[in-house]
Simulated assay, not measured.
Amino acid sequence: MFMHESTIIWDDDQIPISRFFNDVYFNTNGAIDETRYVFIEGNRLFARFLQHQQESFTIGETGFGSGLSFLIAWQTFKQFRQQNPNSVLKRLNFFSVERYPLSELEMIKIHNKVISSHDSLSSLAPKLRDYLQGSTNETLDDINLVICFDDITHFPDFLQRQNSLIDVWFFDGFSPAKNPDMWSASLFKQCYNLTNKDGTFATFTAAGFVRRNLISAGFKVEKRKGFGIKREMLIGSKS
């Protein structure tokens, strides 16, 4: 599902900025490395796949954006399946939310700019766009991607209807200062209740009120060195 109106402003350095939140989607230099560092390594995702003893594994994400985090999670799962064909884990569920979906042209521009030099990702991106376009011929391998095109406040109810607890969270909204609803105590409490007993989370931010809201919700929270020049980020678990 794509929007027809523009949701992005490109600044002089060709960095995409949300015109609804006046915040960057990501820095186009190092976006892939940062996504892997924060969400894949922060959640020890490959190790979690190896340890998982059920047929499906579920990721919940707050903010689909350009789909970059999804593409990298998909790539990671493909690598896992190729290396572990006999694993009991066969399927990845990926549930996300996006209030302002990008237009197809915006997504193509971001994908061309950010992932064109990464062969495995650039081969997945057109499949994702065709899937979002509603192509009946496109499948996403062993991935079940479902996006809630609504406000973040409706995401917990949406997740409850999926009848699947979350194993890993990607908390990936815009800056807490510019999009506080994505980081509220009430949202985190509902996310905690929807998390599997061994579930984990990772997020790029280490903002004080975000950390306090996560702790208040029940999560065990740790600080980790941030990516690049960012001093800190947060990771944690339910147990």
Results as ranks from 00 to 15, higher is better:
T76R: 10
D119K: 15
N86Y: 03
S87K: 06
A47F: 13
T139C: 11
H52P: 05
Q75I: 02
S87P: 12
W74R: 00
Y100P: 03
E55L: 08
Q54T: 13
L132R: 04
R129F: 00
R81L: 04
Q82T: 13
F70I: 12
Y131T: 02
K127T: 04
F77R: 07
P85D: 02
R99F: 08
L71Q: 07
E138A: 12
S66Q: 13
G65W: 12
G65D: 07
I143H: 11
Q51M: 09
L92E: 07
D130S: 15
R129V: 05
H118C: 09
P101C: 11
A73Y: 03
N144W: 11
K78D: 15
H52E: 10
F80C: 11
Q75R: 15
V146Y: 10
K78P: 10
G60R: 03
H111V: 08
K90R: 15
D119G: 10
V114Q: 00
G67T: 04
F49M: 13
L45I: 10
Q75F: 06
Q79A: 08
L124V: 07
H52W: 00
H118F: 13
S56P: 14
L145E: 02
T139E: 14
D141A: 07
N93V: 08
C148S: 05
Y100L: 00
F64E: 07
S87D: 10
L102C: 02
L92F: 01
T62V: 04
E55N: 06
F46N: 08
V114P: 06
L128S: 06
F46K: 11
S56C: 03
Q75G: 06
S120T: 08
V114L: 12
Q133L: 04
S135I: 05
C148D: 10
F95P: 06
D141Y: 10
S116M: 13
T58A: 08
Q83M: 05
L45H: 00
F49P: 07
L128Y: 05
T139N: 02
S116Y: 11
Q82H: 14
G63A: 10
S96N: 03
N84R: 12
S69K: 03
L50K: 15
H52R: 14
S122N: 11
V114W: 07
Q75L: 07
S120P: 10
D119R: 13
Y131A: 06
F57S: 02
T136Q: 11
Q79W: 00
D142Q: 14
L68Y: 01
W74C: 00
F49W: 12
E106M: 04
T62R: 06
N137V: 14
E106D: 09
Q82A: 01
P101D: 12
L50D: 08
T58L: 13
L105V: 13
L89F: 00
S56N: 15
F70C: 10
I59G: 11
L50H: 13
S122H: 13
K90H: 14
